[in-house]
C-alpha cells in the first residue's frame, strides 16, 4: 500500500465502516421486523404449529433434512413437502391438508423402511397427536412468502 496512505487512515476506515454498516444492519433488521408479519403469516401459528416446531427441534430433524434450504443435505427438503404431496389441483401449491396428514401419519409409522443400502430414517415413536402437530408445522412453513423458492416441487 502507498506510503501516503497511513495506518491512521486505515484505522478510521475500519472503525467508521464497521460502525456505519453495523448501524445499517440494525436499521434493516428493524425494517424486516415490520415487514415479516405479512410474509410469515404468524397469525396462523397455532399451538399445534408451535408444538410441531418444538418436535422438529428435539428430534434433530434438521440433522438430515433441510427446511427452506437450510439444514443438512442428506434427506429431502421439507418446507415444500406439503406442496409436493398434497397438491390436488396440480398448481404447485399444496391444498389438501387431510391427505397430507394421513400421508405423514403413515410415513412416520412405517419407519425405518429397512431397504438395504437406502438412507434410513429412524423410528421416532411419535404419537398421533405429535405427528398432527408436525404436519401443521410443515403446512404453515410451506405458506411463508419465501420469494418462490424452491424452483420446483422436488425442492
Amino acid at each position: 500500500m502507498a506510503d501516503n496512505f497511513t495506518k491512521g487512515m486505515a484505522r478510521n476506515i475500519y472503525y467508521g465502516g464497521g460502525v456505519f454498516f453495523f448501524l445499517l444492519l440494525l436499521g434493516l433488521t428493524f425494517d424486516t421486523m415490520l415487514v415479516l408479519p405479512d410474509r410469515d403469516h404468524r397469525e396462523n401459528i397455532t399451538e399445534a404449529v408451535a408444538k410441531g416446531k418444538h418436535l422438529w427441534e428435539i428430534n434433530d430433524c434438521v440433522g438430515c433434512h433441510s427446511i427452506m434450504g437450510e439444514g443438512a443435505y442428506f434427506a429431502p427438503e421439507l418446507a415444500n413437502v406439503f406442496d409436493r404431496y398434497a397438491d390436488s389441483d396440480n398448481d404447485g401449491v399444496g391444498d389438501d391438508e387431510a391427505t397430507f396428514e394421513a400421508f405423514l401419519q403413515n410415513w412416520m409409522a412405517i419407519q425405518p423402511l429397512n431397504v438395504p443400502g437406502r438412507r434410513q430414517m429412524p423410528q421416532f415413536n411419535l404419537s398421533k397427536e405429535d405427528v398432527h402437530s408436525l404436519s401443521e408445522f410443515l403446512i404453515w412453513t410451506s405458506r411463508v412468502n419465501d420469494n418462490d423458492w424452491p424452483p420446483n416441487k422436488q425442492g
Binding site: 425494517d31 424486516t32 415487514v35 415479516l36 410474509r39 410469515d40 427452506m68 434450504g69 437450510e70 411463508v144 412468502n145 419465501d146 420469494n147 423458492w149 424452491p150
Partner: peptide
C-alpha cells in the same frame, strides 16, 4: 435472507 421469508 433470500429464501427464508425476509423481503425482496
Amino acid at each position: 435472507y433470500f429464501w427464508i421469508g425476509p423481503s425482496e
